[in-house]
Design a protein around this nucleic acid. Structure first.
Length: 411
DNA sequence: TCTGGGGTCCTAGGACCC
DNA sequence: TCTGGGGTCCTAGGACCC
């Protein structure tokens, strides 16, 4: 594979980059690319990174794997069926995060206006970098070069006058390319795209629009905003119409604070008993509490999510009088919510907890923290009991209010 | 073919207040 | 007593993105 600056030749959407200050930089098959850094022997082979269990899905697929019809979000079982020699690697998130930080660091040497939108992509506004580094096109080429030399993974760059178009441009530049869409060619470029290429159009929206004979962006433009709003709702309609006509004045800005924190797990064997469910909720509640405190946040609303073996999903939530960042409080609330659903008795394929309505922690957090320390001691005690139990058999033990039972793996 | 986990945003109905 | 209208908050569920 060849790296370095190169402009996609297959389509020419202008060479005038004077009005296109927005770059969207997107790594190609990021997780796989990072794995290949550590496993060069796997280059050129069909490789995917995917969830560790049989219920997992493909997180990233090498271009060789894609030739077998394998895509991200595809169930692993199907992917393996499509390609017998498929190499499946488990995800190593901490490694990907480290590489991601390295890449974001490179971005920040070109402009302070960097907005990461996931682990492997970001928007950059380079309007202020012209004098130092050249035109957007030149900056795009430099960024690709830097990422290649310093990190060694391929990156694609889209350059346009709006965020939305820059994002679509980078998608069209893949793999390992760069695409500029000049401002005066923007609407022309959009018109020919299938509706599904627009950001925010998923399977459901596409089905709705296709069933009404709408297939390309120009169909949406001709339909008009009012009619579109009637089909897919007011907010979604207005948004989609704006994108279809390249009206997108969102600025590139540094990331906002998180609005929710959640932890959920899917179980190969559905959870069957109340005790199992509670144990999962307890661990998840503590995980969330820790994360809340590390960001000095309190949750006003606690929600749980359950999914039954027939893939039906339910949620329950409650808003507290006093916001909390305390594992025990979150757990108690989550347990009550679970009791309300009565879904757990049917067996749970998925169970999760979410903290929403986050507010900055001010006074009163100290007391919470102290309680948490006591709680950690209690957990250590519980672990000790677990150890004893592992030695002496599978009878349930009662310890204070915590039901202790053998870990899943032992059954 | 059988569907992860982390998020964001929107809708619609009901409660409540003035 | 038999019933308005606007605003805000809460809850459940759905669509979407990476």
């Amino acid at each position: 594979m060849s790296y370095g600056p190169r402009l996609k030749e297959r389509k020419n959407w202008g060479t005038d980059d004077s009005q296109t200050p927005i770059l969207h930089v997107d790594m190609d098959a990021f997780f796989v690319s990072v794995e290949l850094l550590d496993r060069p022997d796997l280059r050129g082979k069909p490789v995917v990174v995917g969830g560790g269990t049989l219920r997992g899905v493909v997180s990233a697929a090498s271009y060789e794997a894609r030739q077998f019809g394998i895509n991200s979000a595809m169930p692993l079982q199907i992917a393996m069926r499509r390609c017998a020699q498929l190499i499946v690697l488990p995800a190593r998130m901490s490694r990907y995060r480290a590489v991601s930080e390295q890449i974001m660091q490179i971005f920040s040497t070109f402009t302070p206006l960097v907005e990461p939108i996931s682990i492997d992509e970001a928007f950059l506004d380079v309007s202020g970098a012209r004098k130092l580094y050249g035109s957007p096109l030149q900056i795009g080429a430099l960024i690709r070069q830097e990422i290649h030399q310093q990190v060694g993974v391929p990156a694609s760059v889209g350059i346009a006058n709006t965020k939305h178009l820059a994002k679509i441009a980078s998608a069209n530049a893949k793999p390992d390319g760069m695409l500029l869409i000049s401002a005066n060619r923007a609407e022309d470029f959009l018109r020919h795209l299938p509706i599904g290429a627009l950001w925010g159009v998923g399977e459901q929206t596409l089905k709705k629009l296709n069933s009404r004979g709408l297939f390309t962006v120009v169909d949406l433009v001709n339909l008009g905003q009012a009619s579109l709003e009637k089909i897919i709702g007011k907010a979604a309609g207005a948004k989609l119409y704006a994108l279809a006509t390249n009206q997108d004045d969102r600025a590139v800005h540094p990331p906002m604070v998180e609005k929710s924190i959640s932890k959920e797990e899917t179980f190969y064997e559905p959870l069957q008993t109340w005790e199992e469910c509670c144990a999962v909720l307890l661990a998840q509640s503590h995980f969330i509490a820790k994360k809340l405190r590390s960001q000095s946040l309190l949750a006003r609303t606690i929600a749980i999510k359950v999914r039954t073996p027939d893939f039906r999903t339910k949620s329950r939530s409650v808003t507290l009088a006093t916001p909390t960042a305390l594992g025990k409080s979150i757990y108690e609330v989550a347990k009550d919510l679970l009791a309300q659903t009565e879904q757990w008795s049917k067996g749970l394929r998925l169970l999760g907890v979410r903290a929403e309505n986050l507010v900055g922690a001010e006074r009163g957090v100290q007391a919470d923290l102290f309680t948490e320390v006591k709680e950690q001691r209690a957990q250590k005690a519980a672990q000790a009991v677990d150890a004893v139990q592992e030695k002496f058999g599978n009878n349930f033990l009662q310890l204070g209010t915590n039901m202790v039972f053998p870990p899943r793996d032992n059954r």
